[in-house]
Design a binder for these strands. Structure first.
Lengths: 169, 169
DNA sequence: AAACTAACCTTATATAATTCGGTTTATAAA
DNA sequence: TTTATAAACCGAATTATATAAGGTTAGTTT
């Protein structure tokens, strides 16, 4: 078996579909089909296949954070005390449960985890920071408050995609 | 004028709609209406209003970055030389044009900008870093490569939303 | 209490999604 | 090169959904 078990790799048309849906997830199948020069039937077949093969994980509305009371964002660097390996698991299990933690990344190069928080205010920040400091294994933290969102949540630059396994066109 | 010019504030039903669409942006209006105990007509009226009032900015497919050749992520801290105020503008204008820069935040507390990159490989990282170092005003950078995505792109925790201006229920 | 407004429901119409059978095109084997 | 096979595609029919219009209720204001 030289290739992934289910389905073939996305071709150029699939890439256009993905890029289009990434930007407008509620485009009608009829419109999408026009855009990729297909009739509706094979177009929706491709979309379903992309969903089933896991290239599309879901669809979501992009909400305006500021207008909904989440105008404040902050990044928190977290360093753990590595007494045991289980510390990492405990920290991860606990941190993902905090709703205000929008992202959590384990990183290399200076500290252990980088968290992105979405908050309503600095008061809310103070509350959440209290939670994080008390999480298992946390040694120290450093916060960077976001002053201005210059660019956010840009989609995947599919034009620059490396072919996942073999020929993509 | 004590309140925002157009439209009223989202009530509890609107919040449920927003939270639902955030998680499933392609839910049919019929299903959505059932979920919030409305008939389809007032439900879609509310959705349209939320769109027009800017609470919903758009819809998009969530793509699997790894399967599409963007398995590598990295954060880059950027410090500028503040010779002039225009340096900030120049840097911002230039950095937003780099497709691999998924996010760019101006932050307080140690450095100036925090960038999030989505990349296909470390080779790609090397190329993009070269671009960033050469951007106008860049004094120094520090990179943190993401080892593991513990939590990513969690939606807004609307249950914890502060009422934007007044009564939200 | 009456008038007004806003939100809602029901029904009818238009549009889109989905399914199915058949055709073309590409791929592989003989 | 020819033939067999599979994949992708198209068009038409069906089903479901979105959209629009008219009327009703509930809440507010005067």
């Amino acid at each position: 078996m030289t290739q992934s078990a289910k389905g073939r790799l996305p071709d150029r048309i699939d890439m256009t579909i993905l890029d289009t849906l990434q930007k407008d997830g509620r485009i009608s199948n009829v419109e999408l089909a026009k855009k990729v020069n297909l009739s509706p039937s094979p177009c929706i077949d491709r979309v379903r296949k992309l969903e089933q093969d896991g290239f599309i994980e879901g669809y979501g509305a992009r909400l305006n954070a500021s207008k909904l009371g989440f105008g404040t964002a902050a990044f928190i660097q977290v360093t753990l005390d590595r007494t045991t390996g289980a510390v990492f698991d405990q920290f991860r299990d606990a941190v993902v449960k905090i709703p205000q933690v929008a992202e959590c990344h384990m990183v290399a190069g200076g500290f252990d985890y980088l968290l992105k928080l979405r908050l309503s205010s600095m008061e809310a920040y103070r509350g959440v920071l209290g939670l994080i400091v008390d999480l298992p294994g946390v040694l120290q933290t450093h916060t960077y408050v976001v002053i201005e969102q210059v660019k956010q949540d840009a989609g995947l630059p599919l034009k620059f995609a490396a072919a996942p396994e073999g020929k993509t066109e």
